[in-house]
């Protein structure tokens, strides 16, 4: 993720609705005292992979479930594939694929039986063999789902989202519980889907996943969309700098660190201090000098580009993975 100043952020401008598979405007949803979704708006274009990012409780899942037709919105408009999700959810369900975060499956049915069962729910469906191949479950086709590992079960639930050859797929934290290899192969699958013209909305709290897959992302917290756009635009809009990080030194306060040359912001997070700077060598030189005066030595000192993680930290003051 290059941090070089690049093109304008296209997501902030309201899209026309042409070529949009999802249009959300001023959507609100409340559960008792909790405003789960607080007047959010965004669009997903046809053929793109769109990521909803945010910590648990940010309102991602509620938003996705409204889009899937599982919940009704309190206020606002929600159109999926041009259809009003609040009133015609049934028409949407035929054309979208849904993978739920924690849904279990029929424990006593085999992989093939579950796939065939779900295929019977739709007017059109993909061949079982295609689905098994897509999620690499061919060898486990006759295993009962209770005998599958967590990652295999997750892959089956992704396959179920693809059963009806959907135009739009919702993936809710699809790689949770997967080992790195399975995660990679799922990413490949998602990219292949996009090549085939399928639009994808995925929620995740893995930064790497969003950076690898998503054409555009929206960052949510406390029921609001804080910012949206391409990953690159989000990063470069905030950080022209690079990040210098080291284990927090007790003697150095944030205001003092922000006085160091070219430092634009200093953040403390989980015992690590992060300085965003326009000139890495000037900042590090000054930092080491100041530390020496105090008789301190910065440990685990390093430099990196800014990432979505930094964007999120900057927006909310919290790390995304909490």
């Amino acid at each position: 993720m290059a941090i070089s100043p690049s093109g304008q952020d296209g997501a902030a401008t309201p899209a026309t609705g042409d070529g949009a598979v999802i249009e959300v405007a001023r959507l609100r949803k409340r559960y008792g005292d909790v405003q789960a979704v607080d007047s959010i708006s965004f669009e997903v274009h046809r053929g793109e992979i769109f990521g909803l990012l945010g910590p648990n409780g940010a309102g991602k899942t509620t938003t996705v479930e409204i889009l899937e037709g599982l919940r009704s919105p309190d206020e606002g408009t929600v159109r999926v594939l041009g259809i009003d999700a609040a009133h015609h959810a049934d028409r949407i369900k035929e054309r979208v694929g849904v993978q739920l975060q924690t849904a279990a499956l029929y424990p006593f049915l085999t992989v093939v039986e579950v796939l065939d069962l779900f295929r019977s729910f739709y007017a059109r469906s993909r061949p079982t063999a295609w689905l098994l191949e897509a999620v690499d479950l061919g060898e486990r086709r006759h295993a009962q789902t209770r005998q599958l590992s967590g990652g295999q079960r997750q892959r089956l639930s992704v396959a179920l989202a693809l059963v009806n050859e959907p135009e739009l797929v919702f993936l809710d934290e699809p790689t949770t519980g997967m080992d790195p290899q399975a995660r990679r192969s799922l990413w490949d699958l998602v990219l292949r889907l996009r090549e085939g013209g399928t639009s994808v909305l995925l929620t995740t709290h893995y930064m790497e996943e969003a950076e690898q897959l998503c054409d555009r992302v929206a960052i949510m917290d406390h029921g609001r969309v804080l910012e949206s756009g391409t990953v690159e635009a989000l990063v470069t809009r905030r950080f022209h700098e690079r990040a210098v990080f080291f284990d927090t030194l007790p003697g150095l306060s944030v205001p003092e660190l922000e006085q160091l040359p070219r430092v634009e912001r200093a953040m403390l997070e989980d015992g690590v201090t992060v300085l965003y700077t326009g000139d890495v060598s000037a900042t590090i030189g000054a930092l080491l000098g100041r530390a020496e005066q105090l008789g301190l030595e910065p440990r685990n000192l390093g430099i990196r580009r800014a990432t979505l993680e930094d964007v999120f930290l900057d927006l909310t003051g919290r790390a995304l993975r909490e």
Partner: peptide, 13 residues
Amino acid sequence: EKLILKRLGATPL
């Protein structure tokens, strides 16, 4: 509880 009903609710069934 296991969200099987919910998952089925996301299909046209």
